[in-house]
């Protein structure tokens, strides 16, 4: 069904339209969230939060961009918010532990294995995801959208509300940074 019709039906509170929207885009939203937060539980949480927001604020969607672009933006915003909250919690837990108060034991997460990576590349992909997590936010988003979600530079530019040349520049810097970090990583292992 045409996405504009679905959106209009959802604006009128049609539950079946919402169900169709969720079923159509749940994999895309989940995959994007997973690429950013690199944790299956967190990604599920973010995907749910994204659709809750879609349900509650579909009235503010003017149709100036594609519905999927709007969805990508909400997902990315939610994922980045989630990461910031997690980092804050981690810092707070560390400070509390300094004062000897009981707090959750913060452990470094294990290597992330994306379920969509082919078996013989799992180890290298886990190393790459670990390195991607160290990139500056904009480079990380551009790289993830292009490499993990398979968006073209044009689509990445629309989601990030920037130009194609900016995306090209972000991708170039991301690749240079990743190369350097990976070189250091493998040199350290030798």
């Amino acid at each position: 069904m045409d996405e504009r019709i679905l959106v209009e039906q959802l604006k009128q509170g049609d539950e079946s339209a919402f169900k169709t929207i969720v079923e159509t885009w749940q994999n895309m939203v989940y995959n994007t969230a997973l690429g950013i937060v690199q944790n299956a539980e967190d990604a599920e949480d973010i995907a749910q939060e994204t659709f809750v927001q879609v349900y509650q604020s579909v009235g503010s969607f003017k149709g100036e961009s594609k519905f999927s672009t709007w969805l990508y933006r909400i997902t990315i915003a939610k994922a980045l918010d989630h990461e910031r909250r997690k980092k804050r919690k981690k810092r707070f837990g560390f400070v509390r532990s300094l004062f000897g108060e009981d707090s959750e034991v913060v452990v470094n997460p294990p290597d992330f294995n994306h379920p969509g990576v082919v078996l013989d590349k799992k180890e290298k992909a886990a190393t790459l995801f670990k390195t991607i997590a160290e990139l500056p936010e904009n480079q990380r988003i551009a790289f993830t959208l292009h490499k993990v979600d398979g968006l073209s530079y044009q689509e990445v530019a629309e989601v990030m509300e920037t130009t194609v040349s900016s995306v090209e520049s972000l991708m170039h810097r991301a690749k240079t940074n990743l190369k350097k970090k990976l070189e250091d990583y493998y040199k350290g292992k030798e």
Partner: peptide
């Protein structure tokens, strides 16, 4: 490094 950078080529979309 090159192999690692190419490890995401052909990645499939994850599902909840």
């Amino acid at each position: 490094v090159q192999e690692t950078l190419e490890s995401l080529d052909g990645i499939q979309r994850a599902e909840p």
